[in-house]
């Protein structure tokens, strides 16, 4: 039973090392159309030199709304747990 576990662990580690060996070189993703679109069009479409901000607040604005909701829920949770000190 012990050797089965060791064998399974070695198999997983071997798979991870194999995946690391098969990985693409750093900075060269296989699918880059979306990146190229954002980098080329962000200045004209969103009017922002900071492409990250144009993605966060323009292209993926709905996601940022969810993030803001998560923050709001966290604050509400803290206020709810510690509500005794509010009085």
């Amino acid at each position: 039973m012990k050797w089965v576990r060791v064998g399974a662990l070695l198999l997983v580690v071997g798979l991870l090392f194999g995946a690391a060996a098969w990985m693409r070189p750093f900075g060269r993703p296989s699918l880059a159309e979306m990146d190229a679109y954002f980098i080329q069009k962000a200045q004209a479409e969103a009017g922002a030199n900071n492409v990250v901000t144009s993605v966060v607040f323009d292209y993926r604005g709905f996601d940022t709304l969810g993030e803001a909701t998560v923050l709001f829920c966290a604050v509400v949770g803290v206020a709810l747990v510690l509500r005794r000190v509010l009085r």
Binding site: A46, A48, F57, G61, V78, A79, L86
Partner: peptide, 26 residues
């Protein structure tokens, strides 16, 4: 420049200041 981006930055910034500030205070 930026259209709604700077305004949204200010909105989210005020929200984060108020949220984290009230968490620290509580």
């Amino acid at each position: 420049t930026g259209g709604t981006l700077p305004l949204m930055n200010w909105a989210v910034g005020l929200k984060v200041i108020a949220g984290l500030g009230s968490v620290v205070l509580l």
